[in-house]
């Protein structure tokens, strides 16, 4: 099996005056969060284990203050963890020399920031070309690459504007173009769209999905919006108070939430868009008759109308075999929750 691009091994980051008392040789001396909190320490992230696979989009979710940004900063090599190891291509990211780390940042990582982080004194072109300028590439080369990136995000014709002359959505496009200019392997996005209004936000999500389809980067994406996560993610990690509650696909989180917290988090999710036929079907053998057939991997939304119109259940097919069935009550369960839950709510 291919090794993950980035991995966390019992990574913790503590904030507080007495933080160093609880770390020896890169390991925490306590596994108890309460001991830390009583000592006035904020465990921004605590014993996190993660694997981030190559070419996939990994989303980190959680409420404000749950440690998402801290985790991302550790993964990106900006903040050293207090304990544990970050493995980048199987090597400890924080054991690289300063010069090597600079090279990694220049050529293998790119980041999009929540508040855009555009340099106010540079034009759009200057901002996009900035990483290349830092690398010391010749002017003609870097401007050509920058132009290509600007075209990629649809900002051609605005190269010579300054950030203050752009709308929020346009500014973030510049941020995206800039983060891609160095052709990174890993692309970090920290709540890239939460400063934007909902319509622009949708547009930008589509943009990221489109770019990902073309470029196949490894993406680490932070959001606190589950819908956004579902749209872009291959896998999602849900964080609470610095700890990872569960990692999985959107569907796994919905179907088998590991904790009540995860359940609460996914309650308002667009279930029909996420769940597949396989996860809602009954496997109890039924000979039919069937009103039609669906693939096990089809999303509910794609056959909901058909199911609604038919009085008979649909057969779920995998490898040309019927492996289960779906009827209309199941559809209702998905949309408004199973009966027991509805009474409780």
């Amino acid at each position: 099996m291919q090794h993950p691009v980035l991995a966390c091994r019992k990574v913790s980051r503590l904030y507080g005056a007495r933080a160093s008392e609880f770390v020896t040789d890169g390991h925490l001396t306590t596994d108890n969060v309460q001991t830390l909190q009583e000592a006035g320490i904020t465990p921004a992230i605590f014993n996190v284990d993660l694997d981030i696979e190559r070419g996939k989009t990994f989303v980190i979710m959680g409420l404000s203050g749950s440690g998402k940004s801290t985790l991302l900063r550790c993964l990106a090599g900006l903040t050293p963890p207090s304990a544990g190891k970050i493995l980048f291509e199987s090597k400890n990211l924080f054991e690289f020399s300063e010069a090597d780390l600079i090279q990694i940042h220049r050529h293998q990582m790119g980041m999009v920031f929540q508040h855009f982080a555009l340099l106010p004194h540079l034009t759009v072109l200057g901002n996009v070309a900035f990483p290349l300028e830092i690398q010391g590439r010749p002017r003609a080369e870097r401007e050509e690459i920058a132009q290509r990136m600007i075209r990629l995000v649809g900002l051609e014709g605005r190269e010579h504007r300054f950030p203050a002359q752009l709308s929020g959505g346009q500014q973030q496009r510049v941020g995206i173009a800039r983060s891609l200019a160095g052709d990174p392997d890993v692309w970090f996005l920290d709540e890239p769209f939460s400063a934007l209004d909902p319509l622009i936000r949708r547009e930008m999500q589509a943009e990221v999905i489109r770019l990902q389809g073309m470029l196949k980067k490894t993406i680490v994406f932070i959001t606190h919006d589950f819908e956004e996560a579902v749209r872009v993610a291959d896998r999602i990690a849900i964080m609470k108070d610095g700890q990872v509650e569960q990692v999985g696909t959107a569907e796994e989180l919905l179907v088998s939430p590991a904790t009540d917290y995860v359940r609460a988090f996914t309650r308002d999710a667009p279930r029909a868009h996420i769940l597949t036929a396989r996860s809602i079907m009954t496997t109890s053998p039924s000979a039919g008759p069937f009103g039609g057939e669906v693939n096990a991997t089809d999303r509910v939304i794609s056959f909901a109308r058909e199911l609604d119109a038919s009085s008979l259940p649909l057969a779920v097919i995998e490898n040309n075999e019927i492996i289960g069935a779906i009827d209309r009550t199941m559809l209702l369960d998905i949309l408004i929750g199973p009966e027991t839950q509805a009474v409780g709510a």
């Binding site: 600079i102 940042h105 220049r106 980041m111 920031f113 508040h115």
Partner: peptide
Amino acid sequence: VPDELRSLGSMTGCTRRQ
């Protein structure tokens, strides 16, 4: 100077002088 801009510097691989 906003923290984000400092992070930008680190992420683009700026040396201290840069």
